[in-house]
Simulated assay, not measured.
Amino acid sequence: MPELPEVETVKRTLNQLVAGKRIRSVTVKLPRIIQRPAEPEAFADALSGRTIREVDRRGKFLRILLDGLVLVSHLRMEGRYGVYDADEPVEPHTHVIFHFDDNTELRYKDVRQFGTMHLFKPGEEFALPPLNKLGIEPLEPEFTLDALRGALGKRTSRIKPLLLNQEYVVGLGNIYVDEALFQAGIHPERTGDSLKKAEWERLYEAIRATLERAVEAGGSSVKSYVNGQGEMGMFQHQLLVYGRKDEPCPNCGEPIRKLVVGGRGTHICAKCQPLRAKAAKAEKR
């Protein structure tokens, strides 16, 4: 699933490609992608004649700002946008097409068919699902050490599932949580309330640094992710532990281990990220 760096990259790419374009019409080939309004015909009618002003992001969601409406789009597992000339063949698994006045098209392709689109009046999107329960943005000024510790520091759940919970901190998924925890030297099965002040400081810095580097590299193309121009991200070449089972730890040389935490495959260095006895007891409470 695209995480914050990938969605941020798509946002920036689409701003370059479609901002200022006027939608002539919309074709919906897979109605269940459209979650709001209930009828895909109403969705298409509402967008016809609108101009895309800007593309923004909230967590892992895209906010496509039009004159008088906001389209909230979630890519889920393998959703992707691309801009094409209208006469180019439409690829399989293309489910929504936005036809522009200039004879180009914004096409939404989704092999897994899990993506969603919601249409709102401006400002209304923040009060209703799916954006109404999202947590703090880790690359915005609101994300401070105190905010992170305040959200998670008293919780007895394991730190990895806490970081993956979008109601606390948005945009983090499996890849970047594994990378940040490794850089902070924190075992993913430690509980939130077991972390010391210095560990929270390291984790805060690791989250910001990891995401900033990933955004700069255009995200990680571990599976099928590409940006709006069909280009792969390059941050996968900088990953330290994720996807590197049995490879030597870049810090100590011990083999990277893969375990399951909260139902998610998780990569760690057991030596650099020790599960202390005190933390283990906290985990059993």
Rank of each mutant, 00 (worst) to 15 (best):
V70D: 10
V70F: 05
V70A: 09
L71K: 02
L71M: 15
S73W: 13
L75D: 05
R76C: 01
R76A: 15
R76Q: 14
E78A: 10
G79A: 07
G79D: 03
G79W: 00
R80G: 05
R80H: 03
R80K: 08
Y81C: 00
Y81H: 14
G82L: 04
V83H: 04
V83C: 07
Y84I: 00
Y84R: 04
A86V: 04
D87C: 00
D87S: 08
D87V: 05
D87R: 10
E88A: 13
E88H: 02
P89F: 03
E91N: 03
E91C: 01
E91L: 14
T94N: 01
H95Q: 09
V96W: 02
I97A: 04
F100Q: 07
D101Q: 14
D101L: 13
D101C: 05
D102C: 01
N103E: 14
N103P: 00
T104F: 00
E105F: 00
L106F: 01
L106H: 01
R107G: 00
K109V: 04
K109H: 04
K109M: 02
V111N: 09
V111H: 10
V111I: 15
R112D: 03
R112Y: 01
Q113T: 13
Q113I: 02
F114C: 02
F114Y: 13
G115I: 02
M117E: 07
M117A: 09
H118E: 06
H118C: 12
H118Y: 15
H118A: 12
H118K: 08
F120G: 14
K121P: 00
G123D: 11
G123R: 04
E125W: 06
E125P: 03
E125K: 10
E125Y: 12
E125C: 02
F126C: 00
F126R: 04
A127R: 13
L128W: 13
L128Q: 14
P129Y: 05
P130R: 09
N132T: 02
N132H: 15
K133C: 01
L134A: 01
G135K: 00
G135F: 05
I136F: 07
I136L: 08
I136K: 14
I136Y: 01
E137K: 07
E137Y: 05
E137C: 06
E140C: 03
P141Q: 12
E142A: 15
F143N: 12
T144Y: 06
A147E: 08
G150S: 12
G150Y: 07
L152F: 07
L152I: 11
G153L: 13
R155W: 05
R155T: 05
T156N: 11
T156D: 09
T156K: 15
S157Y: 11
S157I: 08
R158A: 14
I159Y: 07
I159T: 12
L162I: 11
L163M: 09
L163I: 08
L163P: 06
L163E: 07
L164K: 13
L164P: 09
L164W: 11
